[in-house]
C-alpha cells in the first residue's frame, strides 16, 4: 500500500485530483491511499505518508516540507499543467516515479 499525501492551501482544489488519482490507481490494480490536506494539517498528516505532493500554489513550501520530514520522504511539486487539467493518471505516474527515484 502506497500512501500519497497531497498538500495545497485549503485542501479543496486538490481533493478533485485525489479522486482522479484514486481512480487511476484502481484502474491499474495498485493499492494506493491518496488524500489531501491544507498546509495547517500537513505536518501531522505527513507522518502517515510515503510521498508528499504539493499543489503549485504551495510550491514555496517545498524546502520547508522537506525539512519537516527530515528528508526521509520524497516531496515534490505537482506540475502546473498536470494539476490544471486534473490529470490523475499523470499525477499518479509522477508520484510513483518520485517515490521510486527517492529510495534508490
Amino acid at each position: 500500500m502506497i500512501n500519497i499525501l497531497l498538500v495545497c492551501s485549503a485542501g479543496m482544489s486538490t481533493s478533485m485530483l485525489v479522486k482522479k488519482m484514486q481512480e487511476a490507481a484502481e484502474k491499474r490494480d495498485l493499492e494506493a491511499k491518496v488524500w489531501a490536506v491544507g498546509d495547517s494539517e500537513s505536518h501531522e498528516e505527513s507522518k502517515k505518508a510515503d510521498i508528499i505532493l504539493l499543489g503549485p500554489q504551495v510550491k514555496y513550501l517545498e524546502s520547508k516540507m522537506k525539512d519537516r520530514v527530515n528528508n526521509e520522504k520524497p516531496v515534490s511539486v505537482i506540475d502546473m499543467r498536470v494539476y490544471g487539467t486534473m490529470n490523475g493518471e499523470k499525477a499518479l505516474d509522477n508520484a510513483l516515479e518520485a517515490h521510486k527515484n527517492f529510495n534508490k
Binding site: 478533485m16 503549485p56 500554489q57 504551495v58 514555496y60 502546473m80 494539476y83 490544471g84 486534473m86
Partner: peptide
C-alpha cells in the same frame, strides 16, 4: 471546472 482549475493552477503557481 476545467477553466477554474486552469485559473487555480496558473495563478497559484504565480503566487508561489
Amino acid at each position: 471546472e476545467l477553466i477554474f482549475f486552469e485559473i487555480i493552477s496558473t495563478v497559484g503557481t504565480a503566487r508561489s
